[in-house]
């Protein structure tokens, strides 16, 4: 149960798992720019190939991978069909009574769905191979420059990691309250959307109350342990760039030149 809510981290020890979260974040950003830069089928094919190789290296089981991107597959399929039917241009490949499929339509359908697939796969690859807490640490590092503008980066990162810590707890609690309310005759499974939504009010109110109480107690406990903000604080968790991350940089540069050649 906790696995569902704790994001989709798939623990492992592959090369991709061992890379520094900051490097992975940065690479993801650069890669996304590449994806939008690639305006030809052949360059998108290169990116697709790269994505599949990376996924293979991360040793994520195919079934797990597909389950994670299934919701997105629907959107991919939908845009694919839309492009097939709506985009006109080039030779007509297929003529049916109401539908005509043009060459350009086919090209666009393949191109756009490949692009979407690449985007979603690479993003989930990051969450597959990086634990939530490492993701948070990575974000904290990336946001650090914003400290100059008086943005409380440390506090934001601490909030995120506390949220991660409490998600499984609150999830368990939701289930408990749900069962308690069911035992008192609450009905969560019938009726249309609005009615169902309303039936969750008796779950949410106790949940919020308890969350506030927890927050208060946690604040007290943190104060008792000498917490007073980021000032004068050292850090236990440390991220280290390794030679692996250097390789990631080289891959990024290579991809850049390949794309420039193909575009």
């Amino acid at each position: 149960m906790s696995q569902i809510v704790m994001g989709q981290y798939y623990p492992g020890d592959s090369l991709v798992h061992r890379m520094d979260p900051r490097a992975k974040w940065l690479f993801l950003m650069v890669f996304m720019i590449f994806v939008f830069w690639a305006n030809h089928l052949r360059s998108t094919a290169v990116l697709l190939f790269f994505t599949l190789v990376a996924a293979g290296m991360a040793r994520i089981p195919v079934s797990v991978f597909i389950r994670a991107i299934r919701p997105a597959l629907f959107i991919i399929l939908f845009t694919m069909i839309l492009h097939l039917l709506m985009t006109k241009g080039g030779e007509a490949l297929l003529r049916l009574p109401f539908i005509t499929i043009y060459q350009e339509g086919l090209r666009q359908a393949v191109f756009v769905s490949a692009r979407l697939f690449v985007l979603i796969s690479v993003a989930s690859l990051l969450t597959f191979t990086t634990s939530p807490i490492d993701l948070t640490d990575g974000i904290e590092w990336l946001l650090k420059p914003l400290q100059r503008f008086k943005i409380p980066v440390h506090e934001i990162a601490l909030m995120m990691s506390i949220a991660l810590r409490f998600i499984p707890l609150l999830w368990e609690e939701t289930e408990k309250i749900r069962k308690a309310q069911t035992a008192r005759g609450a009905d969560f499974d019938t009726g249309f959307f609005i009615k169902r939504l309303k039936s969750y009010i008796p779950v949410l109110i106790p949940l919020f109350l308890s969350a506030f109480r927890r927050a208060e107690e946690l604040a007290l406990a943190m104060e008792a342990r000498g917490y007073r903000g980021s000032e004068g604080r050292t850090k236990w968790r440390q991220l280290r760039f390794s030679s692996l991350d250097g390789w990631l940089l080289i891959v990024a540069v290579l991809l850049f030149f390949v794309l420039r050649f193909l575009e």
Partner: peptide, 8 residues
């Protein structure tokens, strides 16, 4: 539960 801050 309400005094443990970190995830490990």
């Amino acid at each position: 539960d309400n005094q443990i801050v970190a995830t490990t």
